[in-house]
């Protein structure tokens, strides 16, 4: 169950594209752990060294714009990112997030709501984020039930597997 998620914010800006997240020249790497070492390599050269197993990305508008490369979600998963909050998501990126079991939360935010390194607790089925650092409750629009179900099943392939092999 991933209903409650706890972690620390890492702030990113607007229009972070899939080439920023996984540069093309890292795309042919066969080893995904090696590929993940290239995450945001040009934009935030220190990102991979700084990100820990309990980070929540907080980004601006149009997060994940660009290519359909699912690697741009998978590298965050490998690095242990627990959720991504953004003012808006590119369409394919949002699907890829949910499909791989990472909550994507669309929320208009400002510095009053989140700063770098804030300790957050997200309750998905209530549409609620508690910012422990700022002692502040923030509401967000809950995902449609069938998307929440994909997250509960830890990704759409796990869900599909259950459907294919039931009984």
């Amino acid at each position: 169950m991933i209903d409650k998620i706890e972690g620390y914010t890492y702030i990113l800006g607007d229009d972070i594209n899939t080439d920023d997240i996984v540069p093309s020249n890292a795309l042919t790497l066969r080893d995904t752990t090696e590929m993940a070492k290239n995450t945001l390599r040009y934009l935030r050269p220190n990102f991979v060294g700084m990100v820990t197993k309990n980070n929540i990305i907080v980004a601006g508008e149009n997060f994940g714009t660009g290519s359909s490369r699912e690697e741009a979600v998978n590298v965050f998963k490998i690095l242990g990112v627990k959720a991504i909050i953004a003012k808006s998501f590119a369409r394919i990126y949002f699907r890829n997030l949910i499909n791989l079991g990472i909550p994507g939360i669309q929320l208009n935010w400002d510095k009053k709501k989140f700063s770098h390194g804030d300790h957050l607790e997200i309750t998905l089925n209530k549409g609620l984020i508690f910012n422990k650092t700022k002692n502040k409750e923030i509401d967000f629009k809950k995902l449609p039930d069938f998307l929440t179900k994909i997250l509960e099943d830890e990704g759409i392939l796990n869900q599909l597997k259950k459907k294919l092999f039931k009984g």
């Binding site: 660009g66 290519s67 359909s68 490369r69 699912e70 979600v73 369409r91 394919i92 699907r95 890829n96 499909n99 791989l100 990704g155 759409i156 392939l157 599909l160």
Partner: peptide, 24 residues
């Protein structure tokens, strides 16, 4: 591929998806 939208020139609907959606 995200540029799958191209085929809309032929009066059809087409759009890009990621690897997991392809598997589905």
């Amino acid at each position: 591929d995200s540029h799958t939208t191209t085929y809309g020139a032929f009066n059809c609907l087409s759009t890009g998806i990621g690897a997991t959606d392809v598997s589905v």
